[in-house]
């Protein structure tokens, strides 16, 4: 059961990786990185139960919490061209 789940998650990871490499627009890539992180959370959790080590859940937690922050940092970077948010519209040139 765990094995089948892990395989399914791995397949979706490959799909998101493809989208991240290929992704014509920035938002495709961003969404790909974000969902890749979510898939990592899932696969770590599944692997933890698969090998009987539930303390792997700690790592899954870190990902679930931290992945969100880097996505927001990327979005801010594209809206303002930096992390401080001093010059609006400066970020347009990057996309």
């Amino acid at each position: 059961m765990h094995f089948v789940t892990a395989c399914a998650i791995l397949i979706t990871m490959v799909l998101t990786l493809y989208r991240g490499m290929r992704g014509p627009t920035l938002y495709d890539r961003l969404l790909a990185v974000n969902s890749f992180g979510t898939k990592t959370v899932l696969i770590i959790a599944v692997y933890g139960f698969f090998s009987g080590r539930p303390d792997f859940l700690d790592i899954a937690f870190v990902y679930a919490l931290i992945n969100f922050i880097s996505t927001i940092a990327v979005l801010k970077f594209f809206e303002y061209g930096g992390l401080g948010g001093f010059n609006r519209d400066a970020g347009r040139e990057h996309s």
Partner: peptide, 19 residues
């Protein structure tokens, strides 16, 4: 690796990229 690589390093690299 999870906390440094996925969280802080990406943010700091974006900060460097903005400069």
């Amino acid at each position: 690796e999870a906390s440094v690589g996925a969280g802080i390093a990406t943010i700091l690299m974006l900060g460097a990229l903005s400069l």
